[in-house]
Design a protein around this nucleic acid. Structure first.
Lengths: 129, 129
DNA sequence: CAGTATCCTATTAGATACTG
DNA sequence: CAGTATCTAATAGGATACTG
């Protein structure tokens, strides 16, 4: 008999962290918001390369549910919605920086590309406040 | 026309790092090896809860290919194979510790469980050398 | 503008059986 | 013992069309 997938029962903190900001898109969204501050949906989408609305909306929902991103909608026509990091969201930025620095040491050997070519995640740049 | 999935073209260092030690299993494997040192296949499997051979073997292969884990096989009957972290592998442990500490601050509010219940990832314990 | 809805594909995980 | 092979299942990602 086929068993249904095992629940993520007693979750370790590592898994929680990787759920919240791991994956292909979430870390980049946090990354972009950390640099650009508050962004409207369309601008945020433009800062992510090759993301579709379906995927961006899904990831934003999860980030909001996890308390990483704050959504502010204005009652205007045309509609305006802005996204920025919460305090909890800001607190993961140093972790992403650490990963970036670690990866930077090995990145070239893998891709042949300099870390400098990744502008979106360039944590060496000054962060705007 | 349906387009094939976009390649991960110019990869940012963040993505590289999350590829290498993100995901459900890789971080745990690194975690266990960081604590237990060198382990045989069977013991390693036992330290991971609910992993199948297919999945463990697959993840180990990738970790070896990425230079995180070293595989040593002994020419004995029955066969003996040992796994441990490389220097590169050891260098990601502090990152996992950081994630652990960050998550610990939010873990309880999510799961209702204390961080202490996650023994496998308990980086507060002394690491054996 | 800021998304939903729907459908499809690609990737990852899990179960089971088997082998050098 | 330490896996491989082969299958199915679950999930994440992607394309396209459409809406308040």
């Amino acid at each position: 008999m086929y068993q249904a997938k095992l629940e993520k029962d007693i979750r370790c903190p590592l898994e929680y962290g990787l759920d919240v900001f791991g994956g292909r898109w979430k870390s980049r969204i946090i990354c972009v918001l950390a640099h650009q501050g508050t962004l409207r949906y369309g601008i945020l989408k433009g800062e992510m390369t090759n993301i579709t609305d379906a995927v961006l909306a899904q990831n934003l929902k999860e980030l909001i549910a996890d308390g990483i991103v704050r959504r502010t909608s204005f009652d205007e026509i045309p509609p305006r919605v802005e996204y920025n990091l919460t305090e909890k969201g800001e607190s993961v930025v140093p972790i992403l920086q650490t990963i970036c620095r670690w990866s930077g040491a090995y990145h070239r050997e893998i891709s042949g590309l300099s870390i400098a070519q990744c502008r979106k995640c360039d944590y060496t740049a000054e962060k705007r406040s």
